Amino acid sequence: MELRRHSLKHFFPYLYGEFTQLGGDIKHLLKFKLPEASDYGIAGSIQGLGLGALFLVLFTGLLWFITWNANLSWSHDIEDVHKLLTGLVQAYMIGHGVMGVLHIFVYSKSLKGG
């Protein structure tokens, strides 16, 4: 699992006040260049967003299951939050896939010298 290989700081450097690498990566992106993957950079932060979103979906799913089994009136509200977060994870995955294809395109173009 990624959390065993890397610390939380790798995925959430901004929570630890580490902005140096993120700033450098953003400067690269603004120049339409892909930054190299590095510790505390944008690649790890993007992974952190995905991990955080998945944990939120897991948490709200469990909470919805518990409240639904307990027949609580607000279980439908938890269901709505869970569905919203699931939609955000789907959007993240689609965006992540599109960016992956873009990376392949940019990388292949740079190999051809263009």
Rank of each mutant, 00 (worst) to 15 (best):
M1F: 06
E2K: 06
E2W: 09
E2L: 12
L3H: 10
L3T: 15
R5S: 15
H6K: 15
S7F: 03
F11W: 02
F11P: 00
F12C: 05
P13F: 01
Y14G: 06
Y14S: 14
L15F: 12
L15S: 09
L15E: 08
Y16E: 07
Y16L: 01
G17Q: 03
G17D: 04
G17W: 05
E18A: 04
F19H: 08
T20N: 00
T20Q: 00
T20Y: 00
T20V: 01
Q21D: 11
L22T: 02
L22E: 01
G23R: 02
D25C: 04
D25M: 02
H28I: 00
L30P: 03
K31Q: 14
K31N: 10
K31G: 04
K33L: 10
K33Y: 05
P35Y: 11
E36F: 07
E36Q: 12
E36N: 09
Y40C: 06
Y40F: 09
G41R: 01
I42Q: 05
I42W: 06
A43I: 04
A43V: 07
G44H: 06
G44E: 07
S45Q: 04
S45K: 02
S45Y: 00
I46R: 01
I46T: 07
I46V: 14
Q47I: 08
G48F: 01
G48D: 04
L51D: 06
G52M: 05
G52R: 03
G52Q: 03
A53T: 13
A53W: 09
L54N: 13
F55I: 05
F55T: 10
L58A: 13
F59S: 09
F59G: 04
T60R: 07
T60S: 13
T60P: 01
G61W: 02
L62E: 02
L62K: 04
L63D: 08
W64G: 06
W64N: 11
W64D: 02
I66K: 14
I66C: 12
I66Y: 15
N69V: 00
A70I: 05
A70L: 15
A70N: 10
N71H: 11
N71A: 13
L72N: 08
L72G: 01
S73W: 15
S75C: 12
H76L: 10
H76D: 12
H76I: 15
D77H: 11
I78P: 06
I78Y: 13
E79T: 04
D80V: 11
V81Y: 04
H82R: 15
H82L: 07
H82M: 10
H82T: 05
K83M: 14
K83F: 12
K83I: 12
K83D: 14
L84G: 05
L85C: 07
L85S: 08
T86M: 08
L88F: 13
L88M: 15
A91K: 11
A91I: 14
Y92H: 12
M93L: 15
M93C: 13
I94E: 04
I94D: 09
G95D: 11
H96W: 14
G97H: 07
G97E: 08
M99C: 03
V101T: 13
L102P: 01
L102T: 12
L102D: 06
L102N: 08
H103W: 15
F105P: 00
Y107E: 05
K109L: 14
S110P: 06
S110V: 11
S110H: 14
S110R: 15
L111Q: 15
G113N: 10
G113H: 07
G114M: 15
G114R: 14
